[in-house]
Simulated scan of single mutants.
Amino acid sequence: MEGQASGPDDKILPLPDEFIEFLNENGLDPSIYVANDSTPRYIRLKPGFEAHIEEFESEINCKLERLSWLPNFYCLPPDIRIASSKAYQEGKIYGIDAASGAAVSALDITSGDHVLDLCAAPVEPTESMLEGKSEIYKEWTSRRPWKERKKASKARENGAYKLFSQTHDPELIYYGRDSGVVGLSKNKVYEHLNDYKVSKYGYDKVLVDAECTHDGSIRHIQKFEQWGWETLHRRVLDAERTDELTALQLQLLSNGFRLLKVGGSLVYSTCSLTVSQNEGVVEKFLSQNKSAGLLEIDSARTWPCKSGQIPKTLRFDPNTSCTSGLFVAKFTKWEI
């Protein structure tokens, strides 16, 4: 059975009744999922290429409109494609929603900061980790052998991540030849550190853009028209999966916070608009971490967003922000 979501332009997107009920339970207006043309596409211009704007515009045959509230971001009509452009392929422009850019901007990263990015990428558990044996994290690389990827996929299917997250504390991770954490050499990073040492040597800034149901991504939800609404039920509405996701989100947030130095900043974000994956996770995390506190995001005073259900948290949505949906919370670590 399908319901209808209608927007100001009277266009209609059929949505399953179960999904509309899901939206109502979370206080969300179904009209944000209308397939309208009002939400623009956003790009970020790589710093240093400002003088090439006209060249980019000529290549994609479109005028770029500078976003007043977010540096280096531009908007363009939603039907414009940039993937085949030379500027995109050379890494001079990036396709990224403005709300996601705002979440990164909230970290206020400055030159010299050591930053840990936990964007929807938990460490793959190996067999020895799951058996409780100690193991040194290797230097991160995205080029893993096919057999290793297959084994990790099988571990996910068998619930290995859940077991791993419940029984293992994170270690400091070395991310490259010229990176690491302040005050530690590469060899030192491989050593086991207690909480006190981690708080002293940890990262200045941490971004936890956690895995979620992606219900705040309007274009993602619209794709279920082609994928089938049964897939929407499995990926978004299934209670068991969402319970596992909130457990993972809390663990990612907790792990990221443990690797944050005292006085540092951590931003937690999801592209979900549900309370359970956002305010619910934040409240539970704060109740478990006495050294954690929410920070005001100063730059957000000019952002087109609204407050979350917890003071100092933020929510973006198509109707308010002309962006995809996103939740943002910023934490600091106090010395106790």
Score class of each variant (00 low, 15 high):
1 M>L: 04
2 E>Q: 05
4 Q>N: 14
4 Q>H: 08
6 S>L: 07
6 S>I: 12
12 I>D: 06
17 D>I: 14
21 E>Y: 03
22 F>Y: 14
23 L>R: 11
24 N>F: 02
25 E>N: 15
25 E>Q: 14
30 P>T: 14
33 Y>R: 04
34 V>W: 01
38 S>G: 12
38 S>H: 09
47 P>I: 04
54 E>H: 09
55 E>D: 11
56 F>E: 15
57 E>A: 11
60 I>W: 08
68 S>T: 14
73 F>A: 05
78 P>H: 03
80 I>F: 15
81 R>M: 11
86 K>W: 10
87 A>Q: 06
93 I>N: 13
93 I>H: 11
100 S>Q: 01
101 G>L: 03
102 A>W: 02
102 A>M: 10
104 V>D: 07
104 V>H: 10
110 T>E: 05
111 S>H: 10
112 G>H: 11
113 D>Y: 04
114 H>W: 02
114 H>E: 03
116 L>G: 07
116 L>I: 07
121 A>H: 04
132 G>D: 03
133 K>H: 15
134 S>D: 09
141 T>R: 12
144 R>C: 03
147 K>F: 04
151 K>R: 15
154 K>R: 12
160 A>P: 01
160 A>T: 05
161 Y>T: 08
163 L>I: 12
163 L>M: 12
166 Q>V: 07
168 H>P: 04
170 P>N: 09
170 P>L: 02
171 E>P: 07
171 E>T: 13
171 E>N: 09
173 I>A: 03
174 Y>V: 07
174 Y>K: 07
179 S>M: 02
193 L>S: 12
194 N>D: 08
196 Y>H: 02
196 Y>V: 00
198 V>R: 02
202 G>S: 13
203 Y>D: 01
206 V>G: 01
207 L>S: 02
208 V>D: 02
212 C>K: 15
215 D>I: 13
216 G>Y: 10
218 I>P: 05
220 H>V: 08
220 H>G: 05
227 W>V: 15
228 G>F: 05
229 W>Y: 07
231 T>Y: 02
233 H>E: 09
233 H>T: 13
234 R>E: 06
239 A>H: 09
256 G>P: 01
258 R>Y: 03
259 L>G: 11
259 L>C: 13
259 L>E: 03
260 L>N: 05
262 V>P: 00
269 S>D: 01
272 S>V: 12
273 L>E: 04
274 T>Q: 15
281 V>Q: 11
283 E>R: 06
288 Q>A: 15
288 Q>T: 10
289 N>R: 09
293 G>A: 03
294 L>P: 11
296 E>T: 06
298 D>Q: 08
299 S>C: 04
300 A>T: 08
301 R>S: 11
302 T>M: 04
303 W>C: 09
304 P>W: 01
306 K>G: 00
307 S>V: 02
309 Q>F: 00
309 Q>R: 02
309 Q>W: 00
315 R>I: 02
317 D>S: 12
318 P>E: 05
325 G>S: 04
327 F>P: 06
329 A>V: 08
332 T>D: 00
334 W>V: 06
